Amino acid sequence: MPAPKPLDPSSSPRAMPGAELRHQREKAELTQEELGNRLFVSGSFIGQLEAGTRHMHIDIAQQIDQILDTDGYFERNCEAATKSKYPDHFAEAAEAEAIATEIREYEQLLIPGLLQTPAYARVVFRAYQPTAIEDVIDELVANRMDRTRLLDSPTTPLVWCILDEAALRRAAGGPGVMAEQLGHIADLVRRHRAIVQVLPFSAGAHAALEGSLKLMTFEDAPPLAYLQGLGTGRLHDDPATVAQHQLAYDFLGATALSPKESLALIESAAEDYAHEEHP
């Protein structure tokens, strides 16, 4: 088995504590599974902490300090490592997304955040918070656009999104916003920067009727699944649970239109919106 990849402390606020956890665990001659057993968590959870894809709660930090005799190091660094500009329910997923090698996502009703334009994101956030002052919306949009910079790299991470047709047909912000948004997705596809499939209405019942799904894989940590609801979200690292969600995503991909057919549908919808905006 190859040696774990060295962690870049600048890649995430959790990278430095994660690297230190790995060092102290190996110094204590404990495997991830053995340390996990002492903390009543899985070995894969320890792997996620070490990789910086999960944040360390204060109670876990205190127990690790005690088990590894680290003189309060992890408790002291716990608060700084968990600070985030994202909502609590999404903070862990955003940190994980930033260092993932592959991101696969299914969305039912809206365009995934990584593919959004500023205008579309603004409409979505305003719908979420209709009474918020403009500065709050500006900050939310800016943070979302920061996430989209993952796509500035020509090759990594691999981004594969399956969009329900409802996301294309829901005219968030009106035809002008939707024409620009769908044109942006088509451009990403044509530049080979994202794989996008559309799950058409004609598919009927499918494996993810209950909600959206994000799957993330990493170079040196177990995969994660993130499920999000209204103001809530949960990150799963249990191997059996993640495998179940991976299978559901595979079923969605098999049911959806091919990438070529999907691109044609997206561009056709963009043209329809553009004609509606400028008859």
Score class of each variant (00 low, 15 high):
I195G: 14
E34W: 03
A98W: 12
L158W: 06
R169I: 00
L110S: 14
H206S: 02
L199D: 04
L30E: 12
R25W: 07
L49T: 01
D164V: 00
I67E: 14
A93Q: 13
D187F: 10
T101W: 04
T82I: 09
R170Q: 15
E102V: 00
L199K: 03
T117L: 10
A3R: 14
E261C: 00
L7Q: 07
Q63G: 01
A61R: 04
I137S: 14
E219F: 13
E34R: 03
T155A: 15
E79P: 02
S10N: 05
G43Q: 08
G233W: 10
D238C: 02
V189A: 14
G72H: 09
C161V: 00
I195W: 15
A179P: 07
G174P: 02
R191K: 09
P118H: 06
Q62K: 12
D187C: 10
D135W: 13
Q108W: 01
A28Q: 15
A264E: 15
A61F: 08
Q62V: 02
E26P: 01
E267D: 01
L150W: 08
E102R: 08
G113M: 03
G204F: 11
Y273D: 03
P239Q: 14
A127F: 06
A81V: 02
A61S: 14
R14W: 09
V123W: 09
Q62E: 13
G18I: 02
G211C: 03
G18A: 11
G211A: 04
I133P: 15
G173N: 07
A274D: 12
P118G: 06
H89N: 08
L263D: 09
L263P: 01
V124L: 15
T155Y: 15
A186C: 12
I67F: 14
S262W: 13
Q66K: 13
A221T: 04
D138H: 15
